[in-house]
């Protein structure tokens, strides 16, 4: 089918990565659906980058043990990917395919060979920040590159742009090693091929460990970084929840923080990122924390250097504090009724 000018490229997001380096946070979810910046899941950032480049066909490959990602992406409507032509292709690998890129690609050959676009961009789900994919494509064509790879502050990132034909050839000729993920396969297959760098100068970050997740989330409190990630003309798109505005009580005290909708705040919050629908009781103090959606913090609690996962309830007067440099992490759904160890 004849396509309009921008429709030259489709996207692939490798969301199969599941990692132990996030400890309790990724016990029951893929890295791709880790809540981030009070309102988002990690995958929203790369998905929005693709959509803002005019890409209207995206394949997401996800891990078999996790359905939170599928629930989040749904039909792809939020990203305008519920289309008759192109749109969202969501593939959940089955148990036999786990950690076996060869099988996944073999079973999905048709997706790659039939896509009516000359180019493809392949990216991971855990990079936050703006990647101008359309400019990357322009450079790729102008320089007649074989493969273009994103480079940020001197470091190569696993975001690749090549022709679809090239990718199909790579899949057909796949024989070496036993790559665990799509991106590992790309990396191995392209090992001997010259890659043209595409420099991204704006703020970008790869979220790859618990400490990195914590540090970089709180880093968003730096205004320059905040504005680099959340540019008005390129909104980060995510599933919406119809939460009402955040409500601040007369004695609440909130400074240097990011607060999402649906919060009801009676206590004190500083240097923290607080997600949707969190309740903070009177006299509670939250400092240097990441609070995920639906958490209830009782009266007079003290939270310091903690990551509180979704739907945790912390009873009145309880303290959850980091030990020296070790962050306190309370896993999803926990009810905390005594001091957290």
């Amino acid at each position: 089918m004849e396509r309009l000018v921008n429709k030259q490229i489709f996207g692939v997001i490798d969301a199969t990565i599941h990692s132990d380096s996030f400890e309790l946070l990724t016990q029951n979810r893929p890295v791709a659906s880790l809540p981030f910046a009070g309102r988002y899941r990690l995958i929203d950032f790369m998905l929005s980058n693709m959509v803002h480049a005019g890409i209207d066909s995206v394949g997401i490959f996800s891990h078999h043990t996790h359905n939170s990602l599928q629930g989040h992406i749904g039909s792809g409507k939020v990203w305008d990917l519920d289309r008759k032509n192109g749109g969202l292709f969501f593939y959940v690998q089955n148990e036999h395919e786990a950690d076996n890129a060869q099988l996944i690609l073999h079973h999905n050959k048709a997706f790659f060979s039939r896509a009516p676009y000359p180019y493809v961009v392949i990216a991971p789900s855990n990079i936050v920040g703006r990647v101008p994919i359309l400019n990357m494509l322009r450079q790729h064509k102008e320089q007649g590159s074989i493969v273009t790879q994103v480079v940020h502050s001197g470091k190569v990132l696993p975001i690749y742009l090549l022709t679809r034909e090239h990718l199909v050839d790579l899949i057909a000729g796949m024989d070496k090693g036993n790559p665990k993920s799509l991106l590992a396969f790309i990396e191995t297959s392209l090992a001997d091929i010259e890659k043209t760098p595409y420099e991204v100068n704006e703020y970008l970050l790869t979220v790859d460990s618990l400490q990195c997740y914590y540090d970089n989330t709180l880093d968003l409190l730096n205004q320059d970084k905040w504005h680099a990630v959340f540019q008005k003309q390129f909104p980060v798109l995510t599933k919406t929840k119809d939460e009402p505005p955040a409500k601040y009580y007369p004695h609440s005290k909130v400074t240097n923080s990011i607060i999402a909708n649906g919060c009801i705040i009676e206590g004190t919050i500083t240097n923290s990122v607080v997600a949707r629908g969190v309740k903070v009781g009177a006299g509670a103090i939250i400092r240097d924390c990441i609070i995920m959606p639906g958490v209830v913090v009782g009266k007079d609690c003290i939270l310091d250097g903690a990551i509180i996962d979704k739907d945790v309830t912390i009873a009145e007067g309880i303290a959850v504090k980091k030990r020296e440099v070790k962050l306190a992490v309370v896993p999803k759904g926990e009810f905390v009724f005594k001091e957290w160890e």
Binding site: A37, G38, R39, Q223, W226, V229, F230, P235, V236, P244, P245, A246, K247, Y248, Y249, P250, H251, S252, K253, V254, T255, N256, S257, I258, I259, A260, N261, V273, A275
Partner: peptide
């Protein structure tokens, strides 16, 4: 994005979107 409350901001009794 969520609301950004600066280090010098003071908020008392409000609804903010």
């Amino acid at each position: 994005p969520p609301q950004y409350i600066d280090a010098n901001a003071t908020i008392s009794h409000a609804l903010i979107n």
